[in-house]
Amino acid sequence: MSEPSRSNNKPETGAFYQRDLDWHPKAFTPWYKTSVLRSPQKSLLSLDGTISEITGPRFGHNIIGELDNDLIHNFARPGESAIGPRIVVYGRVVDEDGRGVPGALVEYWQANAGGRYRHRKEGYQAALDPNFGGCGRSITDENGGYFFRTIQPGPYPWPNGPNDWRPAHIHFSIFGSGFSQRLITQMYFEGDPMIAMCPIVRTLNDPDAAKALTAKLDMQETLPMDSRAYKFDIVLRGRRSTFFENRREGN
């Protein structure tokens, strides 16, 4: 699974910047009903990272198949393709200091153009697309860049309030270089009026947080006569510099 460390780069060994837990959603958000019984009620124990959290698994480019970042074709029958508005999603994974994170594993999943997931427990009546699986993955390049092609997912209703709908979104999972950078989030689409109504988006307190998850349409990066492009950058926790080793005197 792992590859030797990035050549010529100093290994990343600093502890991570403290997470801003007021910026992230709180655990208990009763308007998102499932959170009520799944939210820890006691305080988190705050600790500085040890080697167990500062390190993390590394995935080699060798795990990536040719169609892994092509959701239009990676589940489709030969010669066929998924139905829906064709888009490219691209961006960079950077840390809080703006440095690109190379070698990050980015995994993404989504509903089809009708808003239907390919899942045993999915109950929405919208049709399955026989040529759409809904998952893909990339490993970021030396600058932290990634891209994939897919179809724009549809909005879908879900059992929460009597008439709650999710805005169109793509789920993202990201591995940086340390296990405490581990992050799952969602990408929304610029201009979607459903974003502001969504109970899951509203788990974010700060309006700027929802903005940070909303991808912008980028007409400069379209594939002409093929796909529109959305740009989505992802920020992972930054690492403290290791100016001085933090050891007790005499050790």
Partner: peptide, 13 residues
């Protein structure tokens, strides 16, 4: 400094 991308639930799928 940039803000870390805020988390969102992994959802049922």
């Amino acid at each position: 400094r940039l803000k870390e991308s805020p988390s969102q639930t992994a959802g049922p799928y």
